[in-house]
Simulated assay, not measured.
Amino acid sequence: MKAMWNNVVIAESDNTEIVEGNHYFPFDSIKLEFFTKTELTTVCGWKGKANYYSVTVDGKTNKDCAWYYAEPNDAANKIKGMVAFWNGIDIK
């Protein structure tokens, strides 16, 4: 699987986890040079607290388009250390 933004691969892995229709990529599969941590957090009732990244490629930024659960609830432990995408990130 590949995650792409602005025609550039920002993450690639054969070992994604699918949860609620989202592919979660292992943290070591993302290209950190494109990612910036943001202040946004959200809470999911069964997964826990999510933190976000913005992605910037060739001067274009997609704000808060990637999220991860640093300390997920037990029910979502399989996505610990993984990153998912939305808001225009192409997953192929």
Rank of each mutant, 00 (worst) to 15 (best):
F34M: 01
T36F: 03
V8L: 11
N51Q: 12
M82P: 04
A76K: 02
L40D: 06
T56F: 14
T42R: 06
E20D: 10
V8W: 10
D28A: 11
K37A: 02
Y69H: 06
H23Y: 11
P72R: 02
V9D: 05
N73D: 13
K2N: 05
A66N: 09
A66P: 10
W67H: 08
Y52R: 05
D90Q: 13
E71G: 10
K2E: 03
K47Q: 05
T16C: 07
F25Y: 10
P72H: 06
I30K: 03
T42I: 10
D14Y: 04
G59E: 11
N77Q: 15
I79Q: 12
F34Q: 00
F25S: 07
E71I: 09
K2S: 00
N22H: 11
N6P: 02
V19Q: 04
I18T: 13
I18S: 13
W67M: 09
N6D: 10
N6T: 05
G45V: 12
V9T: 14
A75V: 12
K78C: 08
F34C: 03
N73P: 08
F25L: 13
T56C: 04
M1I: 14
W67F: 07
L32S: 14
D58A: 15
I89P: 00
W86D: 14
T41M: 05
D64N: 04
I10Q: 04
Y53W: 00
T61C: 12
E33S: 14
P72F: 07
F25V: 10
I30Y: 12
I89S: 03
K49L: 05
F85P: 08
W46V: 11
W5I: 14
F35N: 03
P72W: 07
I18K: 14
N22D: 13
N73I: 11
A66F: 04
K60R: 08
T16G: 02
K31W: 05
F25A: 12
I10V: 15
A50W: 11
A70N: 15
W86V: 09
K78I: 03
F27L: 14
E33G: 06
L40R: 14
V57A: 09
E39A: 15
P72C: 07
N7Y: 05
Y69N: 01
F25P: 00
M82Q: 11
I30V: 02
K37D: 04
A76H: 06
